[in-house]
Amino acid sequence: MPSISLKGKNMPESPIRKLVPYAENAKKKGIKVFHLNIGQPDIKTPEIALEAVKNNTIKVLAYSRSEGSEEYRTKIANYYKKQNIEVTANEIIVTTGGSEALLFAMGTITDPGDEIIIPEPFYANYNGFATSSGVKIVPVISKIENNFALPPIEEFEKLITSKTKGILICNPGNPTGYLYSKEEIEKLAVIVKKHDLFIISDEVYREFVYDNVQHQSVLHNFGLENNAIIIDSVSKRYSMCGARIGCLVSKNKEVISTALKFAQARLSPPTFAQIASEAALETPASYFKEVNDEYKSRRDTLIRELKKIKGVKVGTPKGAFYCVAELPVDNTDKFSKWLLEDFNLNNETVMVAPAAGFYSTPGFGTNQVRIAYVLKNEDLIRSVEILKKAIETYNAL
């Protein structure tokens, strides 16, 4: 029998999606599943984006340019200008979601065997992107006990070797909701310039920041024009996860010209989705104010309710719409599967994402889960009620 690749064998399963079959089986039994496992907002997609597709008169659904249509990229540049990020259309490549932008970034700056430093826990698919690119992740560990604050920036410098090509951050962070301060970005800027490294900043949750704190982009005034690569997406910003449109942004001309070759190899991003995403840029500021207020309310509800469960530790997110909770159970992989296979409370259960998959350090996160607060407040309250009873039942087995 022919054998599959070692790379294929090493590709990690998604901690977010691997339990889907169990959830589907639970639903077939008539059990209601509260989905806290995935960052799929229940917020309505802006009508303007949907109408742009419905009312389009395209006769031939043709390829777009590999870097995305010039009109759309120009409008993206205008969007960034409102965020105090000065870039041009030629410094933007439209991608099939932020995921492809990350793959292009890794393909552009690394060779097999190179290293990327990433604070952990981190977005689980960074593990997959690194594996498919032959890149080694070098983790900088943050802990729930201090709300996943970064360790001293100097800890990053200790990890730099001749194989280090860059630092990857998610700001605000998935899965922790951690938000980087101006001082932290300044310190990272000093390190990457000193060691001639890239800094990749995944900023897809830019709009979702709470408690009157300002988001800091790596392309604000930190002098990182040659070092910085921004990863972005319409998925969460406009609740358009299914559009699969993102972008890679850099003022480094060599980064853009190299990433464009990867873009040409996959031909082009989807045309209809670009039309919807271009229209979404006209979404009024009031939309984001309402959405942000809603997520802040949900965050406060979730954290308050989780803290009522004996033995649960939880960090308080400053951005995005996730939190990591430490549960008083032996193993959250096992527990999360059990929730769907063997437990229900009045025909209801919850689906969470076991957090071990958000770490690259073996053995870390085995008693933690990521919870996405993308459900309305009353559903979050009910979900935590179910979780509380589930923990009691599971530990009594």
Rank of each mutant, 00 (worst) to 15 (best):
S14A: 10
P15W: 08
P15G: 08
R17D: 11
P21R: 03
E24I: 05
A26T: 02
A26H: 10
K28F: 05
V33M: 02
H35M: 01
H35G: 01
A49T: 08
Y63T: 02
R65F: 08
E70G: 14
E71M: 09
R73V: 15
R73A: 12
I93L: 13
T95M: 14
G97I: 14
G98T: 11
M106S: 02
M106F: 15
T108H: 01
G113M: 00
I116S: 04
A130P: 00
S132Y: 10
V135W: 00
V135R: 00
V135F: 10
I141M: 15
I144E: 15
L150Q: 13
P151H: 13
I153Y: 00
I167K: 03
I169K: 02
G173N: 12
S181Y: 01
K182T: 06
E183H: 08
I185N: 02
A189D: 05
I199A: 00
R206V: 00
F208R: 08
Y210M: 07
V213S: 03
V218M: 09
N221M: 02
N226P: 02
N227H: 12
A228W: 01
I229M: 01
I229D: 00
I230N: 00
S233F: 07
Y238D: 00
V249T: 15
N252P: 12
K261F: 03
Q264N: 06
R266I: 14
Q274I: 07
T283S: 15
T283E: 08
A285P: 03
S286M: 06
E290T: 10
E290V: 14
V291Y: 11
D300G: 01
I303W: 04
I303P: 00
K308Q: 11
I309K: 03
V314F: 13
G315A: 12
P328G: 08
T332K: 10
L340Q: 12
E348R: 13
V350I: 15
V350T: 09
V352H: 08
P354L: 06
P362E: 07
F364L: 09
V374R: 07
D379V: 06
R382D: 06
S383D: 03
K388T: 05
K389S: 13
K389D: 13
E392T: 11
L397A: 07
